[in-house]
């Protein structure tokens, strides 16, 4: 393998990895607050992309994206308030089934609004054929946007959870909901907030990746599966773990192309997931004690 090809594979891997990581982080926020996996996470990504594309006809790109993120956060809040908030002591299984239902519902709504065709945002810098040379290989500038935005999200989330009082309350709610309630924290509001946050993250992800992957009403499912794999791989609830696992999976997938046909790419990802779950059931970066405390 030439060094040029090596770098090209590496860059492709980083592209895939950043996309997976950015989706996985959304899973983690809701998991931390509620202990459930929100299978409608991929639909937040879809809504972000689709709404921003529609808004782009009326306003410049940055405003369209900002507004799309805000609208998707409202959708996230609405979903939580309508379907989750009023449930009294729901079981994990019930919540998961509800999120699957929401995911199907969202897809149907999207196909009625936007139809079945693919759309995309324009490249933020340059166009479809622009590329920048990196050590002899070439990369689309949009990839840098995806990498930068995911990095920024992780840092911002870290700061939010560590330094702000709302962030600390959310963490308290995550580690022990009953104790948090006894301390006077409104846990129901924290759960709504977690849906708003992860909807916002998903929407932003949907916008930055749209020029690369396109947006379509049913794009959420595929992304959710990969994002879920990465979230488990990194250890549920850990944002840093999601990034590391996302990049790891992306790079492995990219390099796997050189040894086996492309068609086996997904099989390799799943094999690695299974191996890691056998050796480290709590994920690569998850703590054993923490996962033992969770129901799921």
């Amino acid at each position: 393998m030439t060094s040029e090809l090596f770098i090209q594979y590496l860059l492709a891997g980083i592209t895939y990895g950043s996309i997976y990581a950015i989706v996985a982080i959304g899973f983690n926020i809701i998991y931390n607050a509620t202990g459930i996996i929100n299978f409608a996470q991929g639909e937040f990504v879809m809504f972000g992309g689709m709404i921003s594309i529609s808004l782009l006809q009326f306003m410049p790109l940055p405003i369209a994206i900002a507004l799309a993120v805000i609208l998707t956060m409202l959708i996230g809040a609405l979903i939580e308030i309508c379907f989750i908030r009023w449930l009294k002591g729901p079981s994990v299984l019930r919540l998961i089934i509800i999120t699957i239902g929401i995911s199907i519902l969202s897809r149907e709504v999207a196909v009625h609004i936007w139809g079945e065709s693919i759309r995309s945002l324009p490249y933020f810098v340059g166009n479809e054929i622009t590329s920048i040379p990196v050590f002899g290989a070439r990369i689309s500038p949009q990839v840098l946007w995806v990498v930068a935005v995911s990095a920024l999200m992780v840092v911002a989330l870290g700061i939010f959870f560590k330094t702000t009082s709302v962030g600390r309350e959310m963490r308290a709610c995550a580690s022990n909901r009953k104790a948090a309630t006894l301390c006077g924290i409104n846990t129901a509001n924290m759960v709504t907030l977690s849906f708003i946050l992860s909807a916002g993250m998903g929407a932003l992800a949907g916008c930055v990746m749209s020029p690369i992957t396109y947006s379509q009403y049913d794009m959420g499912t595929g992304l959710a599966i990969k994002g879920f794999t990465v979230a488990i791989l990194g250890g549920l609830g850990s944002a840093g773990g999601a990034v590391a696992a996302g990049l790891l999976l992306g790079v492995i997938e990219a390099f796997s192309v050189s040894v086996v046909p492309l068609a086996f790419q997904d099989a390799i990802a799943i094999t690695i997931l299974l191996i890691i779950l056998f050796i480290r059931p709590q994920g690569l970066f998850g703590s054993k004690e923490a996962s033992a405390l969770k129901e799921f």
Binding site: L5, Q8, Y9, L11, A12, G13, T15, Y16, I19, A137, M209, I212, T213, M219, G222, L223, E253, A254, F255, V257, P261, L262, A263, Q265, D266
Partner: peptide
Amino acid sequence: EVYDKKSNDLSAVVA
């Protein structure tokens, strides 16, 4: 090479 209908990016196989 065969690619998946849900592919997000194919730069690796193009390389």
